[in-house]
C-alpha cells in the first residue's frame, strides 16, 4: 500500500475545528507558565494546557501591555506534554495568531486577558487551520465570535480575581437569552440579529465617518445585509438547539472545586482555570480536585470530599475594588 500525502487532505474544516473543542468537553484546561507546571497539569488530568508567560493575576499586578507569550516557553511546553497546548493572542492581532499556528499550537485563545491590539475588529478566525476559543459576556458577543469562526466560546468572567461572580453573570446572560429566543417571533429575532450587528456598523462609521447601507462591506467582504442574514441564521440555530452551536466553557474566576462544579451545573461544558491553580498553596492537589469536581459536578458528596484540606485558595479580589478601566471583561465587543 502507498503512503498517503497528508498535505493533500482536508484540514481545518468547521467539523474538525468544532470537533476538537468537543473532545475537551467535561474537562479542565489549565494555565501554565513553565514546563514543570505543564507536567503537573497533565498528571492531574487536565484536558489541555494554556501556555502563558504570566497567569492573569500576575498580568493584573504587573501592568503594562500584555502580549503573546515568548515562543520559547510555548515550544518547550509543546515538546513536554502529550495533551493539547493552547496559547493566547491579543484581540485582533492576527499576526500573533499566525505565529502561534506556525509554532504548532493546537488552539488559539483570542483573549481579553492580553491587551487588545485592534480597536475595530476581532481576528477573522475562518482563515486559520487551527481552531479558536473566544470570550463572551453575553449572547451577542458569543454569536459575533462564532460568526467570525470561533470553534469554542468561554465566559469571560473576570480573570485573575479568583472571584466567580462575573463568570456566573456571563453564563446566566447567555443561558437566559438563549431561553428567551424560544418566546420570540421571527421578526423579533431578525431585529435582535440587527442589534447584534451594530458593533460592526459602529466600527465602519468610526473609520469612514459615513453611514452604512445594505451593501456596505462591514467585515472583510461581508455586506451589512449578508451579515444580518448570517447572524439571524445562527440565532435560529441556537433557538432550536437551546444552546450555543459550539462548545461553551467557563472561565475567569474559578478558584475551587465548587466554583468549577457550579459552572457545570449552570450549563458550561468544561472550565478554564487560570490563576486559581498555580496561585494557590497546593497546586497539584487543587488541580486534581478541580478535575474530579468537573467530572462529578452533580454529586455533592464528591464535591465535599475533594474540597477537603486543599490549603489556601488564591486570595481573590472583590470586583467592586477594581477600577472600571482595569476590568478585563470590558475588552472586546
Amino acid at each position: 500500500m502507498k503512503e498517503f500525502d497528508l498535505s493533500k487532505l482536508r484540514h481545518g474544516t468547521d467539523l474538525i475545528k468544532r470537533g476538537f473543542s468537543k473532545m475537551q468537553k467535561g474537562g479542565v484546561i489549565m494555565d501554565v507558565t513553565t514546563v514543570e507546571q505543564a507536567k503537573i497539569a497533565e498528571k492531574s488530568g487536565a484536558v489541555a494546557v494554556m501556555a502563558l508567560e504570566r497567569v492573569p493575576a500576575d498580568i493584573r499586578a504587573y501592568g503594562g501591555v500584555a502580549r503573546m507569550a515568548d515562543p520559547t516557553i510555548i515550544k518547550e511546553i509543546i515538546n513536554t506534554v502529550s495533551i493539547p497546548v493552547m496559547a493566547k493572542a491579543r484581540i485582533g492581532h492576527f499576526v500573533e495568531a499566525q505565529a502561534l499556528e506556525a509554532l504548532g499550537v493546537d488552539m488559539i485563545d483570542e483573549s481579553e486577558v492580553l491587551t487588545p491590539a485592534d480597536p475595530f475588529f476581532h481576528i477573522d478566525k475562518r482563515v486559520f487551520t487551527i481552531p479558536f476559543v473566544c470570550g463572551c459576556r453575553n449572547l451577542g458577543e458569543a454569536i459575533r465570535r462564532i460568526w467570525e469562526g470561533a470553534a469554542m466560546i468561554r465566559t469571560k468572567g473576570e480573570a485573575g480575581t479568583g472571584n466567580i461572580i462575573e463568570a456566573i453573570r456571563h453564563q446566566r446572560m447567555v443561558t437566559r437569552m438563549t431561553q428567551a429566543l424560544k418566546t420570540m417571533q421571527m421578526a423579533q429575532i431578525r431585529k435582535l440579529a440587527d442589534e447584534y450587528c451594530q458593533s460592526y456598523v459602529t466600527a465602519f462609521k468610526t473609520l469612514t465617518n459615513q453611514n452604512v447601507d445594505e451593501k456596505t462591506a462591514l467585515f472583510g467582504p461581508t455586506t451589512y445585509s449578508q451579515l444580518k442574514k448570517e447572524i439571524n441564521e445562527i440565532l435560529i440555530e441556537i433557538e432550536k438547539l437551546q444552546r450555543l452551536p459550539v462548545v461553551n466553557f467557563a472561565a475567569g474566576g474559578v478558584a475551587t472545586p465548587a466554583d468549577a462544579a457550579i459552572m457545570m451545573q449552570l450549563g458550561s461544558d468544561g472550565v478554564f482555570v487560570g490563576s486559581g491553580i498555580f496561585k494557590s498553596k497546593n497546586p497539584e492537589k487543587r488541580a486534581k480536585a478541580i478535575v474530579e469536581a468537573v467530572a462529578h459536578f452533580d454529586e455533592p458528596e464528591m464535591i465535599a470530599e475533594v474540597s477537603k484540606n486543599l490549603g489556601d485558595a488564591m486570595l481573590g479580589i472583590d470586583i467592586s475594588s477594581i477600577p472600571k478601566d482595569q476590568l478585563l471583561q470590558e475588552r472586546g465587543w
Binding site: L6, L9, G12, G19, F20, D106, P131
Partner: peptide, 27 residues
C-alpha cells in the same frame, strides 16, 4: 498524524461497508 493543524477528514474504505465512509481524524 501530528498536532491539531494536521487533523483531517478523509473518505476511507471499511471492510464490510459497501460505500466509503467520511472519517474525521482529530489529533
Amino acid at each position: 498524524f501530528g498536532r491539531q493543524k494536521q487533523s483531517f477528514e478523509k473518505q476511507i474504505d471499511i471492510k464490510g461497508f459497501s460505500t466509503p465512509y467520511n472519517a474525521v481524524f482529530i489529533r
